[in-house]
Computed example of a mutant assay.
Amino acid sequence: MSGENDLIKLYSGQILELAADIPRLGRLDAPGASVKKRAPLCGSTVTVDLSMQDGKVSDYAQDVKACALGQAAASLVGAAILGCSAEQIASARDALRAMLKEDGPTPPAPFEGLEVLRPAAAYKNRHASILLSLDAATEAASQAEETKTA
């Protein structure tokens, strides 16, 4: 019964609010890069479209089909990503992974809001869904940068 109560606590009001109000939903008409990521264990998917200008994210959209935790992560990423460099996005992804898997520090600004997902560290089967948006955004930012320099 304790495990069930812990899971209920995990889906806090704040997580559900974030999941219900995901910014930058949809797709871009002409993105610099588009990447779809899937969490094999649960089937959650996130497709990220983004464009880069002067080394920073200038436009971003996401199509999110994930559990509430994946949606909450996407919400926080969507709210923070504009103006970020590919390096900042990769650092946030790495920090989020470390926070979930190794009780690492909170991801750096502007992604510090991901701290709200720290209680999910105990639920390894949820990690992939939580990481989808930053995994996809990291790959898309890298692709968009490569395209501009090619």
Score class of each variant (00 low, 15 high):
residue 48 V to W: 09
residue 86 A to W: 02
residue 14 Q to P: 05
residue 133 S to P: 11
residue 15 I to W: 03
residue 129 S to P: 04
residue 19 A to L: 07
residue 69 L to I: 04
residue 88 Q to L: 02
residue 119 P to C: 02
residue 43 G to I: 13
residue 116 V to R: 12
residue 85 S to T: 13
residue 109 A to R: 11
residue 119 P to R: 03
residue 6 D to V: 03
residue 124 K to P: 02
residue 107 P to Y: 02
residue 112 E to S: 13
residue 47 T to E: 13
residue 34 S to M: 10
residue 12 S to L: 05
residue 128 A to G: 08
residue 88 Q to C: 01
residue 86 A to F: 06
residue 131 L to M: 10
residue 74 A to N: 07
residue 12 S to I: 03
residue 137 A to V: 07
residue 73 A to T: 00
residue 4 E to M: 08
residue 7 L to E: 15
residue 94 D to V: 04
residue 87 E to F: 03
residue 24 R to G: 08
residue 43 G to S: 10
residue 75 S to V: 05
residue 6 D to I: 04
residue 127 H to R: 10
residue 21 D to W: 01
residue 79 A to L: 06
residue 38 R to G: 11
residue 45 T to L: 14
residue 105 P to C: 03
residue 150 A to T: 11
residue 139 E to D: 12
residue 39 A to F: 07
residue 30 A to Q: 15
residue 50 L to P: 07
residue 22 I to Q: 09
residue 132 L to Y: 07
residue 67 C to P: 00
residue 24 R to F: 06
residue 121 A to T: 04
residue 30 A to K: 15
residue 63 D to C: 09
residue 132 L to D: 08
residue 75 S to M: 03
residue 11 Y to M: 08
residue 40 P to R: 15
residue 94 D to R: 11
residue 149 T to G: 00
residue 74 A to G: 04
residue 35 V to I: 14
residue 99 M to R: 01
residue 117 L to T: 08
residue 49 D to H: 13
residue 56 K to N: 05
residue 137 A to I: 05
residue 40 P to C: 05
residue 61 A to R: 14
residue 14 Q to Y: 04
residue 126 R to Q: 01
residue 87 E to H: 11
residue 117 L to H: 06
residue 63 D to E: 15
residue 122 A to Y: 01
residue 109 A to D: 14
residue 71 Q to P: 03
residue 14 Q to W: 02
residue 47 T to M: 11
residue 142 S to I: 05
residue 42 C to I: 07
residue 137 A to P: 12
residue 31 P to Q: 12
residue 21 D to S: 06
residue 126 R to W: 00
residue 97 R to H: 08
residue 71 Q to M: 10
residue 97 R to E: 06
residue 150 A to Q: 08
residue 144 A to Q: 13
residue 26 G to N: 12
residue 83 G to T: 07
residue 19 A to D: 10
residue 107 P to F: 01
residue 79 A to D: 13
residue 124 K to Q: 10
residue 126 R to P: 00
residue 48 V to A: 10
residue 150 A to S: 14
residue 40 P to L: 08
residue 140 A to W: 11
residue 115 E to Y: 00
residue 55 G to Q: 06
residue 20 A to L: 11
residue 103 D to L: 04
residue 117 L to A: 09
residue 56 K to I: 00
residue 79 A to T: 02
residue 95 A to S: 13
residue 130 I to Q: 03
residue 96 L to F: 03
